[in-house]
């Protein structure tokens, strides 16, 4: 494993994204559209949705992340780029980390664009004092999503069903992550009322760290078997 090799793979993804701009734009539009739908689904004009904001945020982000994960591998597969990567003299784990970091960067870019809009639309309390906690909980969840997602997207892209398979295998595996992410993000947005809630939020954050570490290790150990033979 070599940092410059990882960086080369990340750079390739970023450059191709800068030229086409299709992934970030479509992911951002997806989140915007989801927000409009939330407004009508939950009557946000008359209800205060702040207590449910974490859930809404992660519903949008989870489905948005699948869009990006699929896209990042459809390119690789269709244009034979994955074969090229496999032929190049780098470790399989380097490919995993490169792709993972690429997916993580795109997720973060879309979130940086989407969260302010989301806050204006749905959040009715001032959460700037808890901004650090909010950012931390989103980042921890993003790491988990990109680790599991990169691993499973590589599997799904090699199947006959291609991108149809990803939601079926990715969503159930990421449910624990989503539960913890919703608790910690909601806590950061709405603020903890009681010591019990504070306790719950901190254990959710610890859970996110544990999930990230476990699935980074699992992905690292299994990626050899997933890409090419």
């Amino acid at each position: 494993m070599n940092l410059s090799q990882i960086w080369a793979i990340v750079k390739k993804d970023v450059v191709s994204e800068l030229r086409t701009k299709e992934m970030v734009v479509s992911m951002f539009l997806f989140v915007m559209l989801a927000m409009v739908i939330f407004n009508y689904a939950f009557g946000a004009e008359k209800n205060d949705l702040t207590p449910y904001a974490g859930g809404l945020l992660w519903t949008a982000f989870l489905f948005m992340s699948m869009l990006g994960l699929n896209r990042s591998f459809v390119h690789e597969k269709d244009e034979g780029c994955l074969d090229g990567l496999l032929l190049s003299p780098v470790d399989r784990s380097t490919i995993l980390l490169g792709k993972m970091l690429g997916n993580l960067i795109f997720l973060i870019i879309v979130q940086v664009l989407a969260v302010p809009v989301f806050a204006v639309f749905f959040i009715e309390v001032n959460f700037l004092g808890r901004l650090g906690q909010f950012i931390l909980s989103i980042l921890l969840s993003d790491i988990g999503i990109s680790a599991v997602g990169t691993l499973l997207a590589t599997i799904s892209i090699n199947s006959k069903m291609r991108d149809m398979l990803l939601p079926i295998i990715f969503l159930p595996v990421s449910i624990p992550l989503v539960i913890a992410a919703v608790i910690s993000t909601s806590g950061a947005l709405a603020g903890a009322g009681s010591p019990d809630e504070l306790q719950q939020i901190s254990s959710a954050m610890k859970f996110l760290v544990a999930y990230d570490i476990i699935f980074l290790l699992v992905a690292y150990a299994l990626y050899d078997f997933v890409v090419g033979e």
């Binding site: 599991v148 090699n158 159930p172 449910i175 624990p176 913890a180 608790i183 544990a210 999930y211 078997f225």
Partner: peptide, 26 residues
Amino acid sequence: ARFAAVYSIIAAVSVPLTFFSIRLIP
């Protein structure tokens, strides 16, 4: 066989995580 084996391991790792995460909610 290869992908099924990989997924069976991922899923088994996810089993205790699921148990634990559900219990985060009182």
